[in-house]
Structures are given as structure tokens and as C-alpha cells.
């Protein structure tokens, strides 16, 4: 299978296993799910390096959201 399609297949498998696993653990924070999706996306991107029709704006968007989530959590710890 070409790496472009293999990367999408692996990404879908990872994401669709993540949701029920976290759900079964009782996780109810949306930022945890989104953080996991972001990590999985970048792992797949690093492993397969799939081509994109333009710059990878999806990676940029996910990284931006991940940065906000981490910053928010850090601020919560530092200034509760």
C-alpha cells in the first residue's frame, strides 16, 4: 500500500481505538482526547511522511490547539 494511504489507515486505527479506550477509563476532558489525536497525527507524520497537496495546515492547526491546551494546563497549575 502506498505510504499516503497507509498513513491514513494507521491514523484512523489509532484515533478510533483511542476514543473507546479513554471513554472506558471514564475520561471526560475533551482536551485529553484532542491532545491524543494531535500526538497520534504527528507520530504518523513522522513515521510515514505522507505527501500533502499543500503545506500541512492540519498539522499546524493541531499543533496550535495542542499548544493552547498545554499552556492552559500549565497556567492552571501555576496560578490555580
Amino acid at each position: 500500500m502506498h505510504r499516503n494511504y497507509l498513513s491514513n489507515t494507521v491514523l484512523s486505527s489509532l484515533m478510533l481505538f483511542t476514543v473507546p479506550i479513554l471513554w472506558s477509563l471514564g475520561e471526560a476532558r475533551l482536551d485529553v482526547y484532542v491532545s491524543m489525536f494531535t500526538l497520534e497525527y504527528f507520530v504518523v507524520k513522522a513515521l510515514f511522511n505522507p505527501r500533502r497537496i499543500t503545506r500541512d495546515y492540519l498539522a499546524l492547526a493541531l499543533f496550535t490547539v495542542f499548544t493552547f491546551i498545554v499552556s492552559y494546563r500549565v497556567i492552571q497549575v501555576l496560578a490555580p
Binding site: Y5, N8, L11, Y33, Y41, D56, Y57, L58
Partner: peptide, 16 residues
């Protein structure tokens, strides 16, 4: 979260 996963997957497929 599941629908967000579908959105991300859909965008990934569109960008392929």
C-alpha cells in the same frame, strides 16, 4: 471527541 476524530481524518484524507 469521536466526531472531532472523524473531522481530523476527513481533513487528512482531503489533503492526501
Amino acid at each position: 471527541a469521536l466526531w472531532i476524530a472523524f473531522t481530523i481524518l476527513g481533513l487528512s484524507m482531503f489533503l492526501t
